Amino acid sequence: MSVFKLPLGICDDIQKVISRFWWSSNAEKRGIHWARWESLSQAKQKGGLGFRDFASFNQALVAKQGWRILQFPDSMVSKILQARYFKNCHFLNAKLGFRPSFIWRSILWGREVINRGIRWRIGRGDQVEIYRGNWMSRPLTFKLVSLPSLPIDVTVSELIDDDNQWKVGLIYQHFVKEDADTITRIPLARQPTADQVLWHFDKKGNYNVKSRYQVALRITLEDSRGCSN
């Protein structure tokens, strides 16, 4: 479950076994399900019992592989995957590619969780695209609301001057006030540093199972509701 996307049928079978154990008084008789599994799999602070939705848990675990690619780009695995699938772009923008392996398909599936919970800490701003990057402190999109008025692939570095300060005039010229106010409040280091990826739902920016499972569960619920409409 930490490496591959398991078939939904397997995840459903596991949940059925747990559900029968929880609701049935004996192995012979099928009990009454007094609450939907969707409700039970919510966190306790949200009114659930903290049970695992196994498809969501699987996605949250697989997402760890993508996080390792972001954190350790010089590792052997990261370099092999980069050479095969995203040689000319960042991992967050990588496509499925031609004849992808099942591992790569699984990693991109897990990346959906990463994209919902990460944002960039701006250093030089040269790795973060203004309009497509996750860099605004605005869950769950972390993106601007302003319509593009600059080239679509321009990076945040274009908004920072030689003294590593925000170009306030340029920012208020090209972005709506809501975005401009948010951007100019983002602290910049005195000396330019590399941009850093953070997990937004942790105070220290660390990637933890509990919060990424909740993000994966939200994705699963959104997909199921979309299919039912």
Rank of each mutant, 00 (worst) to 15 (best):
C11V: 05
Q15G: 09
K64F: 05
F72K: 10
L70Y: 09
D153R: 13
L150H: 06
W34S: 13
R185Y: 00
M76K: 05
F175N: 05
R20Q: 11
H33W: 01
R111D: 04
G66L: 07
L70Q: 04
G31E: 07
S228Q: 10
V168I: 14
L61C: 14
S106I: 14
L61D: 09
Q15M: 11
I18F: 13
F98H: 13
S78K: 03
W37S: 11
D179T: 02
K95S: 14
Y207K: 11
A63D: 14
M76P: 01
V215R: 00
L170P: 11
A43Q: 08
I14Q: 05
V197H: 01
E28C: 08
G50F: 03
S24K: 04
A180G: 09
W109Q: 13
L96P: 04
I183E: 05
S211C: 08
S137V: 12
I14G: 09
W22N: 09
R132W: 03
G117E: 03
A189Y: 12
G48K: 03
I122G: 10
Q65R: 14
D179K: 00
G226M: 06
K29R: 09
E129D: 14
A189H: 15
Y85K: 11
S228E: 12
D223S: 12
H200D: 08
N134G: 00
S75M: 06
N26D: 14
Q59V: 09
I103A: 15
W34F: 13
I186G: 04
S211A: 11
S146I: 03
T220L: 13
Q15E: 13
K29M: 02
Q214Y: 04
E222P: 00
S41F: 00
D163A: 13
C89Q: 14
N58R: 08
G47I: 06
D162I: 10
H200G: 03
A83V: 02
A83H: 06
S146L: 06
L140V: 01
H90Y: 06
L217G: 10
F57Y: 15
N164M: 05
K87P: 09
H33Y: 05
Y207S: 07
I118S: 03
W120I: 08
N134T: 01
R121L: 05
K46Y: 10
N93Q: 14
K29I: 08
S211V: 02
C11T: 14
E158V: 15
D126Q: 12
G66A: 05
L70D: 09
